[in-house]
Simulated scan of single mutants.
Amino acid sequence: MSLPSGLLLSRDAARWGMRFYVRHFWVVAGFSMIPTIQRFVAVRWGDDLPAAVNGATEVLTGAVRLLLIYTIYKLAIARDPELAQLDRLWQRLAWFVDHRRANFLAQFLVLGAAFAVFDVLPNAAVQTWVAEGSREWVSAVLVSVKNPTVIAFTFIWMMGVARQMILAADLPETSADADKDGAGERGGEIADVR
């Protein structure tokens, strides 16, 4: 497998992610509102708030984001009819990582590029082009916009990558029987019986 096929995997996951985002917009937006408000307040007035309030709201934001990721998992993986017909989902994911490592690693390259485009460049633009007196306000708006869009979509997209990897795994049907006998294992990995 090569970098182009890894990029295709990323593209397919992003396409699926956009459909998921639109279909479940209100769920995603709802979970994103607490982090959105928290980040806006933290950037705009964080220095004026007590440290305990800042810390508590960061913990709340983290918890809500974990709940969003769990909800995305339930909707994208656990309740997906296309995946429901497959067995051994986690073994399929592990097989893909083990046998198509370049495709898997390409996802980090694409994620890094997305981070540069949607985080580094906008922040640099604010620092470069926004007047000093307006910078805090613009930064607060920017992080508020990124929470229900860029950050939420990144979670969905990464779950889409896992979904695509599960669907693309060529997990041998006979490995389950071989694993039961212990003959299909090599150092704890699923044997490639092709």
Rank of each mutant, 00 (worst) to 15 (best):
A162R: 01
R92M: 08
V27G: 04
F153I: 08
Q127P: 01
W45A: 13
I77L: 14
F118Y: 03
S139C: 02
Q85F: 00
L109I: 08
L3Y: 06
T154L: 14
R39F: 13
R19N: 11
D47C: 04
E58Q: 12
E185H: 09
F31K: 01
L167A: 06
W157D: 00
L89S: 05
G184Q: 01
A176N: 04
A162M: 07
E58H: 08
G112L: 06
F108T: 02
W157L: 01
D48Q: 10
I34W: 04
W129N: 01
A168T: 00
G6S: 08
E185S: 05
A106M: 02
W137A: 15
A191I: 09
M159F: 13
G184M: 00
R39L: 11
V145M: 13
L7D: 08
S175I: 11
A51E: 13
A52W: 02
P50R: 07
P50A: 11
T71D: 01
W137Y: 14
Q38I: 15
A56M: 10
N54P: 02
I37D: 09
G112D: 02
H24R: 12
Y21P: 03
P35H: 03
A52I: 05
L89A: 05
T57S: 03
I69N: 10
A183N: 07
R186I: 12
L86E: 02
A42I: 05
G62L: 12
D98Q: 12
D12V: 03
I34Q: 05
V97G: 00
V117T: 11
A13S: 09
N123V: 01
V28G: 11
V141R: 12
R194Q: 09
A183W: 04
V117D: 03
D170K: 08
D192S: 09
A51L: 10
T154P: 07
V59P: 02
I72V: 12
S175C: 04
M165C: 04
S10R: 06
L8K: 09
I156T: 03
W95T: 05
A113V: 13
N123T: 09
L171Y: 07
I156W: 02
A131V: 14
L3F: 14
M158F: 11
T71V: 05
F115G: 05
R163K: 14
Q38G: 05
V28K: 00
K180R: 08
L171Q: 03
R163F: 08
T174R: 13
F40M: 14
G112P: 03
M18R: 10
I37A: 15
W95L: 06
T174E: 14
Y21G: 11
L111N: 05
L105E: 09
R135L: 04
T57R: 00
W137T: 15
I166Y: 07
V27Y: 09
K74Q: 15
D179Q: 13
K146C: 08
V193R: 08
L142W: 04
W129H: 11
F104A: 03
L171N: 01
I166Q: 10
P122Q: 02
F40Q: 02
V97S: 01
W129K: 05
